[in-house]
Structures are given as C-alpha cells and as structure tokens.
Design a protein around this nucleic acid. Structure first.
Lengths: 215, 215
DNA sequence: CCTACCGATCGGTAGG
DNA sequence: CCTACCGATCGGTAGG
C-alpha cells in the first residue's frame, strides 16, 4: 500500500504538518509502530547496543527520520516505558476486574501472577522487560513520570498479599514478599520460552506453589 | 608508591615483558585490579554505557593502556564474569562445607540463600550482577567457557531443593523452584540497599519464609 | 605502561 | 518523511 493519498483522509485545515511537537506526532500510527519496533530492538540488544540506525532500519526508515517523531533516543526509551506501563496497568486492572468481588486472596494472587507472567513472556512482551532492565537510564524527570503508574501497578498487589499474610498462607512480610515475587516473575524473561514444555498456566501454578504453598 | 623498582622482584630471565599474551598478563596485580574496576563500571553504567576511557580513568590509566592487559573490551567483560563466577563458586562451596554433614534441607537452603544474597548485594558485589545482566553479550565461546562453573553453581542447589520437595516443605517442582528462587534473589540487586533498614540476615529469613514457609 | 593517532560509528540537525 | 551532513566519541593500534 502506498502512502501517496493518505492526506485525503486527514487534511482538514490545509496541508502540511499539524502544529505538534515531535513528542506528540503520530501520523498514521507511525509513531506507535516506531515505539513497538524500538521496544523490540532495546530488548534484544539493550538501549546502548541498539543504534538509532538499527531501529530506523527495522522500521523501514532512513536513519535521520526517527527524529521527526522523537526529540532524542532517550525520548524513545521513555515512550517505550510509558506505553508499556500503560498497557500493563490496563491489563492488570482488567484481570482484577474480571474476578468475582468475593474472590479470595489466592484467586486474586493467581490473577495477578498470571497477568504479570503474560506481560513478561507473552507476545508483545518487549515493553516491560525494557522498562525493568533499562530503568536506570531514564532521567530523573522521566523516571518520575513513569513512577506514578508503576507505583499504582505495584500497589494493586498489596491487598491480596496482606490478606494472605493475615490468614497465614503467606509467611513472608507482604512488602518484602512483593519485592521477592516481582523478582522471581521478572526474571522469567531471562529463561522462560513460550515454545518450551512449560506452559504459562503451569508456570503460574508452580509460582503459587512456591509462594503460598498452593497446589 | 612508585612502580620504578617492581621489576627487581620479578625479573628472572632478563628485562622486559614476559612472553605472555595480553590475556595472561597480571604484572603487580594490575590486571586483577582492572577487572575489579571494570566490574564496577559495567555494573553502574552497563557494558555499552561504560567506555574503555571511563574504565581507564577509574583505574588511573591512559585510555589505550587497557589493551596492554586485555585484547578487547569484550575480553574484559569475559574476565569479569570468569573471576566473579570463580569467587562465587568458592564462596558457595565454603558455605556448604561449613555445614554439619547431617544438616537438613532447611539449613542447607538457608546457607545457599544467605551466600547468594551476600554475593548479590554485599561489598565486592559487582561481578555477579554484571554476569547476570550482561550475559547475552558474551560470544558463544565465552559463554560456554563460563557455563561450566555456572552450571555447577546452580547444580549445588538441587539436592537441598529435592530433599525439601520430598518432605513436602517445598511445594513447587525443584527445577522450576530453583529458577524462580534465583530470580527473586538476583532481583535484590535492583532494590536492596545495605544501608537500609533490612539486614542481610532478615532478608534471608524472609526469603525462606516465602519459599518454604519457614519462620 | 604512555603518546599519538586512526577509521568507524554514533546521535542528531538543516533544509527541503 | 528523505538527503546530506556534522561533531563527538568510540574501540583499538603502532611505536616506543
């Protein structure tokens, strides 16, 4: 498909670029696609290991064209993390929302673990690993920007963990348990293979077995 | 201290460099010191984020002098991981050896967890985090070279985990439990602060509480 | 180990 | 978005 006529459907106030900054351009979804491509490159090679030329080539663009959409390479990293965190938060809220209001701690933790594993190792799984493993490369301002969503994502685990701690199912203190559990799940990005013999559901159950002796 | 006379204690077959390759030089412990400095730089900035100039400066050398000791930057990374793995293996063997021969699974796991946490977050803790987080950057040959020690290190966990699984203390399958536990412990490098309110011993106990309900 | 240097690659920009 | 380009930095080397 050629792009020659795409303006026809977009132009409303004359021709040319909208008066947006590079941070906000998303003509024809091209910016979103670039974020996906960058996420994959950053994950595979690391932020410093993936050059802007690598990313442009993977997106079928010329090297300099990235900077029509992004102010800098760091801005691309920031965008990857923002998009990823926003997807993860939406996915987690949906997973919790699908539970019965009377779901117990085990059921809540299972939903959270299953969703987090899906995010870590499923398809479209590049965003959060990039965020976790390149977190320190954000500037203070950028980090603060993503932190709000990140904190909320993490906070949603606490009621389930506290309930399990109260009933004695969870033996570690909830806040430390959360950190250790996140570590265990985040690390699956390093070894879990979707094509392997272990399914996501089985991995979820094994995780619950380890953390709260459920099996 | 000046280095002007160090040759006096070393020279045995005339003056000048020993006929060693860059890979084996370690005059006056300078190479070992470089490995420590590089480990710190790699951990703080990542492999690609730390330039050979950064490392040389941190070691008080001129930029090009590194290549008197190492064939390439990748060789430095490899050396960091080899040294780290060798230290970790020695430390773990010592920790297990210090146990009573009749120590049970809980005691064995406690010793392993405590030792691994020490390696991850204690002083001199740069080697293994670098290995874990930059593992993919090794060439196939280099990876194979470190893998033997790494496999042995990991294998030493299995008897304890299998014993705990048999007695019902551990509810997850030993091999998966090992991967999840390593993830939880490896991730502490991202959040544990030695100056924080949580001590290494307390973290060890909380970990055991999470994994096998010990408290 | 230092001095002096090189070719390659990088992130980014001007102008259209 | 592309073309053409720039200054900075990088890993690495020759010669001593």
């Amino acid at each position: 498909m050629q792009a020659g006529h795409e303006e026809i459907t977009v132009v409303k106030r004359g021709r040319g670029r909208p008066p947006k900054s590079a941070q906000q351009r998303n003509e024809g979804g091209r910016r979103s696609e670039l974020i996906r491509v960058a996420a994959r490159q950053f994950r595979q090679r690391g932020f410093h290991g993936a050059s802007t030329r690598d990313i442009a080539a993977a997106a079928g663009m010329q090297p300099g064209s990235l900077f029509y959409f992004f102010e800098s390479k760091e801005a691309m990293l920031h965008a990857v993390m923002c998009d990823g965190m926003s997807q993860a938060a939406a996915s987690q809220s949906a997973a919790l929302g699908a539970l019965s209001p009377r779901a117990n701690g085990v059921e809540r933790l299972r939903a959270l673990v299953r969703n987090h594993l899906q995010i870590m190792v499923g398809p479209e799984s590049d965003f959060i690993p990039v965020m976790l493993y390149e977190w320190r490369l954000l500037s203070d301002a950028q980090r603060q920007d993503v932190s709000a969503q990140k904190d909320e994502y993490e906070a949603q685990w606490m009621p389930a963990l506290q309930a399990l701690y109260r009933t004695g199912r969870l033996k570690a203190r909830p806040e430390i348990a959360r950190l250790l559990i996140f570590g265990a799940l985040n690390w699956t990005a390093q070894w879990f293979s979707e094509s392997g013999s272990l399914s996501l559901d089985e991995l979820t159950e094994q995780s619950l077995a380890l953390f709260i002796g459920e099996r």
